[in-house]
Amino acid sequence: MHIADATRGILGANGIVGAGQNIATGAGLSAKLRGTDQVCACFFGDGSTNQGTFHESLNLASIWRLPVIFVCENNLYGISMHQSRHQAIQDIADRAVAYNIPGVVVDGNDVFAVYEAAKEAIERARNGQGPSLIECKTYRHHGHFEGDPAKYKPAEEVAEWMSKDPIPRLINYMIDNNILSKEEFNDIDSQINDEIKEAIKFAEESPWPPIESVVEDIYTDIVEEVKK
């Protein structure tokens, strides 16, 4: 449910809105203390920028000049609440001023714009210039959770944003500019679809975990009693 892959440095999607921002400062500090050129990218939504964690972590990252990139995916909604109702600003990047760090607004549905902004922020981080805040203006195509009817989103708004969907936009750009042929795209697309189908099949065919595993991985060394 909460996607993570420590082997790839992905510390996990967090169940608590905004909590990952604090953890990101630690990953940044660790990179600095261990003397690596690692940079921590922390992703969160507009809703989480009203949590105390946002303030605490940007402030700490700024004063310690930590190699952290705070990436806000402003998709206009904090659960059901439109951004215009949950905060009195339009550009969350404006909040960077309070921490004396760069705050940039980019079209979050434009892969190249996001790439350019990220590149600059990564360079700054690696040069010891500290964190950056990148606000990617985007949209949440679906509801907050699977099965959310999302009636709070006006149909015209959804239609407008669906027309800006970054995936077809990138594909069309690449085909139009001869970076990718239609056939190559179809190959990649079907290959990925197969991978997904295989993953679903694997998940569906996998047995449920044994009851004993309920107490696994709480600690590295202590195993709690299985019995209730």
Partner: peptide, 18 residues
Amino acid sequence: PISEGVIIGCAVGAAATG
């Protein structure tokens, strides 16, 4: 700073990464 949340949270991130 006087920020107990990020003191503990920063420790979590730092501990998770070596």
